[in-house]
């Protein structure tokens, strides 16, 4: 309803945003194109993460696993197994979905801090695989020389890869947006608000949690694919818990209760990282400060800042207990 009423500004806003992003390489120096590519990849990861975190209300600290699995699929597929582009992408998506399902099933009855610790453990187990299976993954050294020859690009170099990433990210964002409005997507939000109410309505809560993890895992893995091709390199760092914590902070700083909030968080944090790194080595300290300040002053994230200004304090002028118009007819006693 509200979406229908405010539709034109949204359509114009989306078109302007897409146009601006498409034209960006023509407007800024090429270094910023690389930075923007990184922002878009992380933004996509944050949006995928937020299916579990924001929509589902499940605190995952193990999402680096999906991201890193996607990343390693590219790294190994290109350098070791000579897979085609299609196979690489399909395997990455399948891995993301499958591991997502495993996460969902293994964390079925946990919430809050227990869910956080369990996903952390699962994520670290997968990190351990990459770290220790040196023969396959080259361990701590990571896999370098991941060329982009396979990527179906219009041209070569950073500029055309930017457009490739943008295209994939926009398609993913559109799909996730669509998904978030679907009955299944809304039901996932419902289980965040009250699992007991959803169960009493007839929804199988566990199923919707699993779907959230599968969808989230799938798109996180796809973001990981883009990430590795962006850096032409992948290491266990992509799987490390710090990556999980980073994406959690990105989502919170941007605003996990809104659809695009996490993407905005990615833009702000990565821009800040770039700017801070020009002046000091203490980026992690600054990130910590940003996080603390967000929690203290912007509990709804940066997006909440705008929402707070717009929030309507409309009075609800209907009787407190409305008069029902249902008829009493049809009552029958045996």
């Amino acid at each position: 309803m509200a979406a229908l009423r405010g539709r034109w500004p949204t359509v114009v806003g989306v078109l302007a945003g897409v146009g601006l992003l498409t034209a960006l390489p023509a407007l800024v120096p090429s270094f910023y194109v690389t930075l923007s590519t990184r922002i878009i990849v992380i933004a996509m990861f944050a949006l995928a993460f937020n299916v579990v975190f924001g929509m589902g209300g499940m605190h995952s600290l193990g999402h680096a696993a999906f991201f890193g699995l996607g990343g390693y699929t590219v790294g190994l597929g290109v350098t070791r197994w000579d897979w085609s582009f299609t196979v690489i992408v399909l395997v990455a998506l399948a891995l993301g979905a499958f591991v997502g399902l495993a996460y969902g099933i293994l964390t079925q009855r946990t919430n809050g801090i227990y869910l956080l610790l369990l996903t952390l453990a699962l994520g670290q187990a997968i990190w351990g695989l990459a770290f220790q299976q040196v023969e396959i993954t080259r361990g701590d050294n990571g896999i370098s020389g991941v060329t982009r020859e396979l990527v179906p690009l219009v041209g070569t170099g950073a500029l055309s890869y930017y457009h490739f990433v943008l295209l994939v990210a926009l398609a993913s964002t559109g799909s996730l947006w669509w998904f978030s409005l679907s009955p299944v997507g809304r039901a996932i939000v419902g289980t965040r608000e009250s699992p007991t109410r959803m169960a009493a309505l007839g929804f199988r809560v566990g199923l919707y949690r699993n779907i959230a993890f599968v969808v989230s895992g799938l798109f996180s893995a796809l973001a990981g694919v883009l990430y590795t091709w962006h850096h032409r390199f992948v290491s266990p760092d992509a799987l490390l818990w710090e990556m999980s914590a980073f994406i959690l902070i990105v989502a919170i700083v941007g605003g996990a209760n809104t659809f695009l909030g996490p993407a905005l968080g990615a833009a702000v944090i990565i821009s800040l990282e770039f700017w801070v790194s020009l002046h000091t080595q203490r980026w992690m300290t600054v990130l910590g400060l940003v996080y603390v300040l967000t929690i203290l002053f912007l509990p709804e994230g940066i997006v909440g800042l705008g929402g707070r200004l717009r929030r309507r304090h409309a009075s609800v002028d209907v009787p407190v207990i409305p008069e029902p118009t249902a008829s009493r007819s049809g009552r029958s006693h045996e």
């Binding site: 998904f179 009955p183 299944v184 809304r186 039901a187 939000v189 608000e193 009250s194 109410r197 959803m198």
Partner: peptide, 27 residues
């Protein structure tokens, strides 16, 4: 016990959707 941060409309939509098996699985 309601879906507190959702709109009244969304609450009722989900409650109605719950009774249609095909709708519950639509994504």
């Amino acid at each position: 016990n309601l879906l507190t941060e959702l709109s009244v409309w969304d609450n009722v939509l989900l409650a109605v959707a719950a009774r249609h098996a095909p709708v519950r699985r639509l994504f």
